[in-house]
């Protein structure tokens, strides 16, 4: 996929190619969907989850999840703690196999699905080396040729505003910087889908804002975003679509505007009012 990063992407029926190639980030404020980032490669989305359940120790943690994730969209998995948001994210990303049901990539590039997605975890797991080396490592694992890793890594650091810290040891960066570095590392892989698990949960407001901006930039470059959060404000700022989970079940799936304007279930209404939903 690295080779393709310099190629002009194929024009797509849904959206025109971003001029200047995939590395050119679309101008801020540009709305709507652009082509997936960094590839002339076949799209792996949509992702279809059909009747997905996951049980551990005889206890069903999520049950009967059925939904589709479309290319270029920002989907927010919303719900109170313990709703099964992170678990659902891991099932989608392939870190866990469902106990029942199926998780399938339906796009023409489905065979390459695992190489064209990335995930950022709630607590970033960074390697004990420099910020730049962390990104270079991820590129090496994905088989990017040595001579191209450095440039791609620096681009990703620039996107997240970390270029000045490229030489710093990753593990001694601040929490917000570490999360941005995790984003840069994921972004350097030019994923078609980026999964984020509560990416700002342990950050102060300023750091959280920087992370949200980086997520926005990545999305504008064409990557589909799938994010879990229990922060309503963040959901409203970032979501195109909302999946509302509650106690391991998917209660609502709707475009963000519709969901926030009029949630269909009492649980979602309560959650939006800020009540403790059990």
């Amino acid at each position: 996929m690295a080779e393709s990063a310099v190629k002009l992407q194929e024009p797509r029926a849904a959206a025109p190619a971003t001029p200047g190639g995939p590395l050119a980030v679309a101008p801020a404020g540009r709305e709507g969907r652009t082509a997936p980032a960094g590839n002339g490669e076949a799209e792996i989305l949509p992702l279809e989850c059909r009747d997905v359940s996951y049980a551990a120790g005889g206890q069903a943690l999520v049950q009967g999840l059925t939904f589709r994730l479309e290319p270029g969209r920002r989907t927010v998995l919303l719900g109170p703690n313990g709703a099964g948001k992170s678990l659902t994210l891991r099932l989608c990303h392939g870190l866990l196999a469902p106990s029942r049901g199926s998780v399938r990539w339906l796009g023409p590039g489905a065979a390459q699905a695992s190489a064209r997605q990335a995930m950022v975890f709630q607590r970033p797991v960074l390697l004990r080396r420099s910020a730049l080396a962390n990104v270079v490592y991820a590129l090496a694992v994905r088989g990017v040729p040595r001579r191209r890793r450095r440039t791609l890594a620096e681009d990703a650091l620039a996107l997240t505003g970390l270029l000045p810290l490229a030489r710093r040891q990753a593990r001694v960066l601040s929490g917000g910087e570490q999360q941005r570095l995790a984003l840069a590392r994921a972004w350097a892989l030019r994923p078609q889908v980026l999964f984020l698990d509560e990416p700002t949960a342990s950050l102060d407001p300023a750091a959280a804002r920087a992370v949200e901006e980086a997520i926005g930039a990545i999305h504008r470059a064409g990557t589909a975003i799938v994010l879990t959060t229990h922060d309503l404000g963040q959901a409203q700022r970032l979501a195109d679509d909302v999946l509302f989970l509650h106690r391991g079940r998917l209660l609502e799936q709707a475009p963000a505007a519709a969901f926030f304007a009029g949630p269909a279930t009492p649980q979602a209404r309560a959650f939006l009012r800020g009540e403790l939903v059990l």
Partner: peptide, 24 residues
């Protein structure tokens, strides 16, 4: 225990993961 998910997410195989963990 700390790195497993991240390394698997990046697509590192077991052999590569061992090498990475040894260095870490």
């Amino acid at each position: 225990a700390e790195y497993a998910e991240q390394l698997r997410s990046l697509g590192a195989g077991r052999a590569r993961a061992i090498a990475t963990l040894v260095w870490e």
